[in-house]
Simulated scan of single mutants.
Amino acid sequence: MYQRIMIIGSPGSGKSTLAKRLAQELELPLIHLDKLNWIDDKDTVSKEVFLERLDKVVSGSSWIIDGNYGSSMEVRLKRAELVIWLKVPRLVCLYRVVKRYLHSLFQDNSAGNPKRIDWNFIRFIWGFPKSHQKTEELLEQFSTVKVLKVSNLKDALHFVRENT
């Protein structure tokens, strides 16, 4: 069974949803990178504090970590056993991000994603597939890590269930 799982993909791809389901089914600790990074919906911790928090989490014997944070991906890959890369169409991701934003207006968000949407974030999501090349190159350096590329949560859940 996989004990250290990374879940990556565009904002709105379903990383957190998949992470929650897998954490429940596999009984593994769940870590959201956004919760390590965001103080509230406006401010983040320093890069040093974020990396200290991440190092502590990654040193654990088991975890599921969801989030991209490209600058810290190598730290996670050094310990990961499985990477689930959600490659969801960008229109679906945009729809989900807008939906999440609208729901967040009526929920407490003491730590996590900010309660805002701007054109830079929308452009980031739309251009996210362009950043795949950097991720591909980094994953090639970690050939011992199993990489599963899927376009939906159902396929990811099926793979993990079949391999645990």
Results as ranks from 00 to 15, higher is better:
101 Y>S: 01
164 T>Q: 13
81 E>G: 07
127 G>F: 07
69 Y>W: 07
78 K>L: 14
157 L>M: 15
110 S>N: 12
102 L>M: 13
119 W>E: 07
130 K>T: 06
18 L>F: 09
128 F>G: 01
52 E>Q: 15
100 R>G: 03
119 W>C: 07
51 L>F: 03
136 E>N: 14
91 L>W: 14
62 S>A: 14
148 L>A: 06
53 R>C: 09
33 L>F: 07
24 Q>G: 09
56 K>S: 11
156 A>E: 06
65 I>A: 03
48 E>I: 13
34 D>W: 01
122 I>F: 10
99 K>W: 08
119 W>N: 07
54 L>R: 04
135 T>G: 03
138 L>Y: 11
6 M>P: 00
60 G>F: 03
62 S>T: 06
5 I>E: 00
55 D>Y: 12
149 K>L: 05
127 G>V: 00
129 P>W: 07
106 F>T: 15
23 A>N: 03
129 P>V: 12
120 N>E: 14
53 R>Q: 05
156 A>R: 06
148 L>N: 07
4 R>V: 03
149 K>H: 04
122 I>T: 01
21 R>P: 00
138 L>A: 09
125 I>D: 05
158 H>T: 10
116 R>G: 02
142 F>Y: 15
128 F>V: 02
145 V>A: 08
101 Y>K: 01
52 E>L: 09
119 W>G: 00
130 K>W: 11
149 K>D: 01
108 D>N: 13
103 H>A: 14
154 K>N: 11
132 H>D: 13
54 L>M: 13
135 T>A: 13
1 M>S: 14
51 L>Y: 05
57 V>C: 08
159 F>N: 05
95 Y>N: 11
7 I>T: 04
84 I>K: 06
94 L>S: 06
82 L>K: 11
78 K>A: 11
17 T>I: 06
22 L>W: 06
97 V>S: 01
80 A>V: 09
32 H>E: 15
49 V>H: 03
21 R>L: 10
105 L>I: 03
35 K>H: 13
33 L>S: 03
85 W>E: 03
96 R>E: 11
19 A>I: 07
16 S>I: 08
1 M>E: 10
118 D>G: 02
91 L>F: 13
95 Y>S: 08
53 R>F: 07
65 I>F: 09
93 C>Y: 10
95 Y>T: 12
39 I>D: 00
43 D>K: 15
152 N>D: 14
116 R>Y: 06
79 R>A: 14
148 L>G: 05
3 Q>T: 02
149 K>W: 06
66 D>Y: 08
79 R>Q: 14
36 L>A: 10
93 C>T: 02
125 I>T: 05
26 L>S: 08
105 L>T: 02
131 S>Q: 10
121 F>M: 11
